[in-house]
Deep mutational scan, measured.
Amino acid sequence: MEVRTIKVFTTVDNINLHTQVVDMSMTYGQQFGPTYLDGADVTKIKPHNSHEGKTFYVLPNDDTLRVEAFEYYHTTDPSFLGRYMSALNHTKKWKYPQVNGLTSIKWADNNCYLATALLTLQQIELKFNPPALQDAYYRARAGEAANFCALILAYCNKTVGELGDVRETMSYLFQHANLDSCKRVLNVVCKTCGQQQTTLKGVEAVMYMGTLSYEQFKKGVQIPCTCGKQATKYLVQQESPFVMMSAPPAQYELKHGTFTCASEYTGNYQCGHYKHITSKETLYCIDGALLTKSSEYKGPITDVFYKENSYTTTIK
C-alpha cells in the first residue's frame, strides 16, 4: 500500500517557510505537534488534498525554529505562539472599519479597549522592536488589523473576551517599542525636605499616572512627601515624541487643539466601556464603527496623549 502524501510549508514567522512532505494517514499533531492554519487549530486533523502548498504555523520545537521565533517575536515564552494563534482565530472574524481616516474595530468580545489602543497607536510616533509587531502594525494602518490585535493580546497575556485596560495595554506595548531616546527629568520640591531631581528613561519617561493635564504637570502637581507634608512635583525636561497622561476616570474637559487623542471610560472596574476622542479640525468621538463630532467635550476621561518633541522648564 502506497503512502499518500502532500507537500506543505511549516513556519513560526510566515517569513521562513520549511518544506514538509506530510503523510495523509496521520494527523498534523502526530507529525508536527500543535499546528495552526489561519489561526485555526488543526492539530487533530489529517492532511487533505486542499492543504497542498498551504502554510501551517507550528510551535518552535527545534533550534532553527526557536531562533526564527525569537528573532521575529522577541520572546522565548513557549506558550506565546499558541496564544497568538488562538487569538487570531477570533480577531480574523472582527470587522476593521476605516473611521475618520483611522483603522478602528467594530465592537465584539469586549474589544473596546483594543480599538482605543489601536486608534491611539496610529496617532503617536512609535516604532516597535519585534519585527512581528512592526509588520502587523503597518498592515493594521492599511486596514488589516487582525494579526496586530492578536499579537497585542498575546504580548499582554490576554484572551479574547476578557476586559482590558488601555493604560495597561499601552504599557505592555511600550515595553516592546523603541523608547531608548526618551528621557524625563522631574523635580520634587518640599518646604521641609528641599528639592530632589529624578531622571527617568524609556517607558517611565512617557507615562504618568495622577493627572490628565500635561500643562498642569509642567506647572506642578501636589504629591505627598515622605515627611508627610505636601510637596510639588513638576516637569523639568521632556525628550520624547509623545507623552501619555493618565488618571482614574473623572469628568474632564478636553479643549480642541490642546491634545492629540484621549480615552474615555464609562462604567466601573468590573464592567465598563471605552471610547476614543481625537482632536482634528474639530473633536471626534470614535466608538467602534461609530463616529460623532463636537466642538467641545466633557466626560469621564482616563488617558490623554500629547505630541511632544523637546521641553525644558522655565521655572527657576
Rank of each mutant, 00 (worst) to 15 (best):
T5P: 13
N14C: 09
N14G: 11
I15G: 00
N16G: 08
N16D: 07
L17P: 05
D23L: 14
M26D: 13
Q31S: 12
P34C: 10
Y36R: 05
G39V: 08
G39L: 08
A40S: 13
K44C: 07
I45E: 14
I45N: 11
I45R: 12
K46Y: 13
H48K: 14
L59Q: 07
L59H: 15
L65Q: 07
L65C: 07
A69N: 04
F70C: 12
E71S: 09
H74A: 06
S79G: 13
F80R: 03
L81C: 10
Y84D: 03
L88N: 02
K92L: 12
K93L: 09
K95P: 01
P97L: 14
G101M: 01
W107A: 05
L114S: 02
T116D: 06
L119W: 01
T120P: 02
L121V: 12
I124T: 03
Y137A: 08
Y137S: 07
A142E: 15
A142L: 13
A146P: 05
N147I: 11
L153C: 07
N157M: 07
K158D: 04
T159V: 09
V160Y: 01
V160Q: 02
V160P: 06
G161W: 05
E168W: 06
S171P: 06
F174R: 00
N178T: 06
D180E: 12
K183M: 09
R184G: 13
V185H: 05
L186N: 06
V189Q: 09
V189R: 09
K191S: 13
T192V: 13
Q196D: 08
G210K: 02
G210W: 04
Q216L: 08
K219V: 10
C225Y: 01
C227D: 01
V236A: 11
Q237L: 14
S246I: 00
A247S: 10
P249M: 01
T258I: 06
F259Y: 01
F259A: 00
S263P: 01
S263V: 08
G267I: 05
G267S: 11
G267Y: 09
C271T: 07
H273D: 00
I277G: 03
K280M: 09
L283Q: 02
I286N: 00
I286T: 03
D287W: 01
L291E: 15
T292L: 09
E296R: 11
E296H: 15
K298T: 11
K298M: 11
F305Q: 00
Y306I: 04
Y306N: 02
N309S: 09
S310D: 14
T312G: 08
T313L: 15
T314E: 12
I315E: 10
